[in-house]
Write a protein that binds this DNA or RNA. Structure first.
Lengths: 353, 353
DNA sequence: CAATGTTGCTAAATCGTTTTAGCTTAACCT
DNA sequence: AGGTTAAGCTAAAACGATTTAGCAACATTG
């Protein structure tokens, strides 16, 4: 059997011809319908062996054309290069998807409504089997339209409350609440939140968690919102001004890791010592936070868990066409490092009074 | 014109029927062959307007089946979540590819030969139009086999010298040489290289650049190799031992950013001050290096340039079937920060002698 | 022995394009 | 008038799978 240099693709038709049987039979056997279609075991075995031998791989285009399924999942994130969370999720999803015979294409929305809508328009009717999306605000209609067509969707990182759609998010409210509680119990009194100017659920919940903890403790709240689309420098100066204007602040919670990075630069610029002058906690872990001096306390997302749930939801929806909607809320973990530890003595002192 | 809830897909056949013309004509017009095939301008215009009106999108599966082209490019990297370079390249490539009507699927090799081979086996004969690959060692055969089939390939980050294949890399030799020269001219005498235990071109060139600079200056070389697949902790202790065993070392060059991160931890563990006890330069920039105290000097890769060249090479190869092989070597940039600045006085002193 | 079932397989339609080969007209030339 | 050319379009064959409908041969039943 001479292996030609340029391997001519072998088709189901070639197999039929070679074995002297019809392509129907071959197709049935390949699709595991041998018993159902009453193909004899002998023939089944013969075909399967031959298929192995010639290393037959079905043409996905032909399969796709016939079945209407592309075996492609679209992963639509804010920016695969910006937020480590998305890259890590992408990595973990990839393997499982490949195991099930799915391939993943990706695209980035920059968290812009227009871009997301454009991308969805581009992809729909292009036989994408399912979508994993971190949705910007305002794309409810397009998502609903996909849902109406029965296309599986899993939202991730944030939810669209107007919609009834699978999603995997973390418990932003409680994890932020816990982080603020941690600061309070370490004796900090004037705790600021620096967050995104956004009404998306994940940000709204972090804000709510902050407000609840501050209110319950009878403390004053300090909230500063910055804009995702502004330049790094702009936002750093915004934070600098905010901290200068509110110089009683003795602790600050950054609601995303990139805001955390901006915040650290602002704090460095102001020559404030962490945690002596100002304590710090950031949402989302990052190498920088681990190895910064001092190391930075963070609320870490359970990335492997998130990924596992996302891909499982997607694959289940794809295979079983199960219309049940799953809303998965995972706990996040407060990783306490040096940047938030101080005034414990004061706390104990007060406690003893 | 009532828009139905579930948009029934409109096909080229529907268009022909609706307009009372043949699907051939529609196809010619849609593919811009109207003039060539002598379709009248009036009809061309009518068809194009109707196509707009009903928002017709050709079925990619059918197109793919007929033409043998999938309009899909595979991006095969080491680990999209690990090395920022890859995620950034992915991001930049994405947009340009979409503009040209291509979609990108990705997969990660973990820099393992077996995994890469398996993935290539999986994808080939699956009508992937082109491959952008950061190749592990030892996959020359599979790449050659793709090349033999005339499939466009662009290698990135490193080359496979045994093959004659498009690639986009940076000038590892000269950029490393320049970084070591910088250390030398800042008066450092015992400069170590900590690099990967790998014969891949990018690592070999970095090593060669180091050796050349050290030899030309008549200095002693200190080289430590660590293993990509070992755990973080293992490699950190390796580095710690190496620095302890060679305590005359006063500067160190890390040949990748993750080795740099390990190195910083080792240095922190040894309580060495940067740059007073030991100067530091790392390959590849990273938030951590920018904002570390002190900030870390790096050899930064020109990520946008790399991406631009990669996608242009790929698209050119896809569209024109141009068999010319392009080898693109881009300069990297030494970004001097605090971690490598010291002993300038000594240098000046010597210079004056 | 006729009717009915069962076993084991296959012919042919279909999915939505692209593309080759050609078919009508009408115009032009000599 | 007969022959050639050109303009403007189309029929039908792929591409490679899946799937519906059904055929032939044999076995079973009453």
């Amino acid at each position: 059997m001479p292996a030609s240099k340029v391997s001519k693709k072998v088709s189901i038709r070639d197999i039929g011809k070679e074995l002297g049987i019809s392509i129907t039979t071959v197709s049935f056997i390949l699709n595991g319908k041998a018993k159902e279609k009453r193909i004899s075991e002998a023939l089944t075995k013969k075909v399967l062996e031959f298929v192995k031998e010639v290393n037959f791989k079905p043409n996905m285009m032909a399969q796709g054309l016939r079945t209407g399924k592309s075996k492609i999942i679209c992963l639509m994130v804010e920016d695969i290069s910006n937020n480590l969370l998305f890259a890590q999720v992408a990595r973990l999803i990839e393997e499982e998807a490949h195991n099930k015979g799915y391939r993943i294409i990706y695209c980035s929305t920059d968290n812009k409504k227009e871009k997301a809508i454009e991308l969805i328009q581009l992809f729909r009717d292009r036989s994408i089997d399912g979508y994993i999306i971190t949705p910007p605000e305002g794309i409810e209609q397009e998502i609903q339209s996909l849902l109406n067509d029965g296309i599986p969707i899993v939202l991730i990182d944030r939810n669209l409350p107007l919609l009834s759609c699978n999603h995997v998010v973390i418990d932003n409210f409680n994890s932020t609440h816990e982080a603020i509680r941690h600061l309070i119990s370490n004796g900090f009194k004037n705790i600021a939140l620096i967050t995104l100017n956004s009404d998306q659920t994940q940000m709204a919940d972090r804000l709510a968690g902050y407000v609840k903890a501050i209110d319950d403790a009878g403390l004053q709240s300090y909230v500063k919102k910055v804009d995702f689309h502004e330049s790094d420098d702009h936002n750093i100066s915004e934070i600098i001004s905010f901290l200068q204007d509110n110089n009683t602040i003795d602790a600050v919670f950054f609601s995303t890791n990139y805001i955390g990075v901006w915040g650290l630069q602002a704090i460095k610029h102001l020559n404030l010592r962490i945690p002596d002058d100002i304590a710090v906690i950031s949402f989302d872990d990052h190498d920088l936070f681990k190895f910064y001096t001092p190391s930075i306390t963070v609320v870490a997302q359970p990335v492997p868990d998130i990924s596992r749930h996302v891909i499982r939801l997607m694959l289940d929806a794809l295979e079983e066409a199960d219309p049940t909607i799953h809303e998965i809320i995972l706990p996040a973990k407060l990783i306490i490092r040096e940047s938030s530890m101080r005034k414990v003595v004061v706390e104990k002192h007060e406690f003893l009074k």
